[in-house]
Computed example of a mutant assay.
Amino acid sequence: MDKTLLLKAIADETRLKIVTLLLQHNYCVRALARKLEISEAAVSQHLKVLREAGLLVGEKKGYFMHYDVNRDVLHELASEIEALAEIEREACSPMQGGCQNKEAEKCHNQDKNKCSDEVKEFCHGHNHDNETHTGHCKCHHS
Rank of each mutant, 00 (worst) to 15 (best):
K3R: 13
L5Q: 08
L6I: 14
L6D: 02
K8H: 08
K8L: 05
K8I: 00
A9E: 10
D12E: 12
L16W: 06
L21K: 02
L21A: 09
L21I: 00
L21C: 05
L23H: 14
Y27L: 01
C28N: 04
R30F: 00
R30M: 00
A31D: 11
A31E: 09
L32H: 07
E37I: 00
E37Q: 07
E40V: 06
E40M: 07
A41Q: 04
H46C: 03
L47W: 03
L47S: 03
R51I: 04
V57D: 13
G62R: 05
G62H: 01
V69Y: 03
V69Q: 03
D72N: 13
A78D: 05
A78P: 02
E80R: 01
E82R: 07
E82I: 00
A83H: 01
L84S: 05
L84T: 02
E86V: 03
I87H: 10
E88H: 05
R89L: 13
R89G: 09
A91W: 09
C92H: 11
S93F: 14
P94Q: 06
M95K: 15
Q96C: 01
Q96F: 11
G97P: 07
G98V: 10
G98S: 12
C99F: 08
C99A: 08
E105I: 13
C107K: 02
N109K: 14
N109T: 14
K112G: 13
K112Y: 10
N113Y: 02
S116K: 01
S116E: 07
S116F: 03
S116A: 05
D117Y: 13
V119F: 11
F122K: 01
G125Q: 08
D129G: 05
D129R: 13
C137A: 03
K138F: 10
C139T: 05
H140L: 00
H140Q: 10
H140E: 13
H141D: 12
S142N: 15
